[in-house]
Nucleic acid binder design. Structure first.
Length: 426
RNA sequence: GUGAGCGUAGCUCAGCUGGUGGUAGCACCGGGUUGUGGCCUCGGAGGUCGUGGGUUCAAGUCCCAUCGCUCACCCCA
């Protein structure tokens, strides 16, 4: 049996890679416009980092992390998300000393040991953004606006849902009210909700069971229990989004799966990915930096799932972009091949995307290869040309051909041909 | 961790109630055009029918097991 990739680990093949480059390129461009700087952090961290940030009792930490002991017996974990590692680096290098408000983004693989399905892998990739050092509500809107703009520039259709989870002052009161509400309905809920009622009561609200949802119509809303500070904060976020003409829906049932979120949370939702609805999601995490041993600084961030973006892009445009090239050299026979070899390299050095057949196939076959490589021109060198010291330059678009003399001075010849081809192409 | 569906050529798939693996489409290689790509046409190569066992004169087809994939639950980007 051949060795295959691990379950939930995928190769990203050449015909898909164009989508990845498009997403990453667009993201970098937009993030830079908003003043974000890239940070690259390790994939492997001490297990403790994730336990402390994401929350000991969350599913991610409890049963989804790739955790193992290294050769010294230290417990390490492959990062299941990006925020914790970025914050660790932020604290470790005292980045707040350089600039009061830091805007950071990172791109890379994350790991969660889940059962794979559509839009969900064990190794998946996220674009992850964090702003540290400000608790201003307009910043929340700015961050949401950036995510929204990225989605829009990619041409993807999603809807935006926002909510406020309150703060350590008001959330516990709401939680009590909710627990009491659920207690009254004990026995009428699905098994999962019965379980969640005790472990993580807020999570019952986004249960998919229709019967449960019927019950929750009458459930207390977090938005009716916000303290005045949170109320005002959320008000400004909504007002700012409206100002930017970003359409949103308030979903008071939206709860995030990581413990560190407070106040503003948001999700970018699609119905085109089967069971997976969130393409991007994030929120405010004002206590997290301090919780990880750093200064008392507020923060907000979000992550977008790159595989999910790729799936959406693929659904929209059923085209794998074929990489084009500038020139293909069809050299017939050993003599011509020998002559063409340094020419090929010379053209590449001067900047052309050039290719050539090395199998010694027929001209017809080589023309076919040129066509397949999407070459703008083909340079044909055969026996006749060889003896006349010329080559035929064929424009693959309009099929026009011309004779050009073979190089005496290779470097100069290559430069001239390169110039000619690049100007002719556009 | 739970449940369902599916494994036949590089890819997408035919294969009826068991009776010699498909002229199938796309892709690939070659010829038609003794030196010119896309279109057309002719030909070629390519398979341990996921794996192992069982029933049978005979299994891609039926049964069991196993591995893999997919989708859904859970959870999440």
């Amino acid at each position: 049996m051949n060795i295959k990739a691990l379950k939930g680990f995928k190769d990203i093949l050449p015909d898909e890679v164009g989508f990845w480059q498009l997403i990453e390129g667009t993201a970098r461009d937009i993030f830079h416009r908003f003043g974000f700087a890239e940070i690259k952090v390790p994939i492997l961290e001490k297990t403790e980092l994730f336990a402390r940030s994401i929350g000991e009792a969350t599913d991610i930490v409890e049963k989804e992390m790739y955790t193992f002991a290294d050769r010294n017996g230290k417990s390490l974990t492959m990062r299941p998300e990006g925020t914790a590692a970025v914050l660790r680096a932020f604290i470790e290098h005292n980045l707040q000393a350089k600039q009061p408000v830091q805007k950071l983004y990172t791109v890379g693989p994350m790991f969660r040991h889940e059962r794979p399905q559509k839009g969900r892998l064990r190794q998946f990739h996220q674009l992850s953004c964090e702003v540290l050092g400000s608790d201003r509500p307009r910043l929340d809107a700015e961050v949401i606006a950036m995510a929204w703009l990225l989605i829009n520039e990619l041409g993807i259709k999603v809807s935006l849902e926002i909510n406020s989870l309150g703060c350590p002052d008001c959330r516990p009161l709401f939680k009590d009210t909710l627990v009491e509400f659920l207690h009254q309905r004990a026995g009428k809920l699905c098994d999962d909700c019965e379980r969640r009622r005790h472990t993580n009561p807020l999570r019952v609200l986004d249960c998919k069971n229709a019967h449960c949802q019927e019950q929750y119509v009458a459930a207390p809303s977090i938005l009716d229990h916000l303290c005045s500070g949170c109320e005002e904060h959320f008000g400004t976020v909504k007002e700012s989004l409206t100002q930017l003409e970003i359409p949103y829906q308030i979903n008071s049932f939206m709860v995030r799966g990581l413990d560190y979120y407070n106040r503003t949370t948001f999700e970018l939702i699609t119905d085109a990915l089967g069971a997976q609805s969130a393409v991007g999601a994030g929120g405010r995490y004002d206590g997290l930096v301090e919780q990880l041993g750093g200064p008392k600084l507020p923060g907000i961030g979000f992550a977008m799932g790159m595989e999910r973006l790729v799936l959406l892009l693929q659904q929209q445009e059923e085209q794998g972009n074929t990489p084009s090239s500038d020139l293909f050299i069809a050299a017939l026979g050993e003599e011509a091949q020998k002559l063409a070899f340094p020419i090929l390299h010379g053209l590449r050095k001067t900047g052309l995307r050039a290719g050539m057949d090395v199998e010694g196939r027929s001209l017809k076959s080589q023309m076919k290869q040129a066509g397949r490589a999407n070459a703008a021109f083909t340079l044909i060198i055969g026996e006749e040309e060889l003896s006349n010291k010329v080559a035929i330059l064929r424009n693959m678009g309009n099929r026009e051909q011309e004779e050009i003399s073979l190089p005496v001075d290779l470097l100069q010849w290559c430069t001239e041909l390169t110039a000619k081809i690049t100007t002719n192409q556009c």
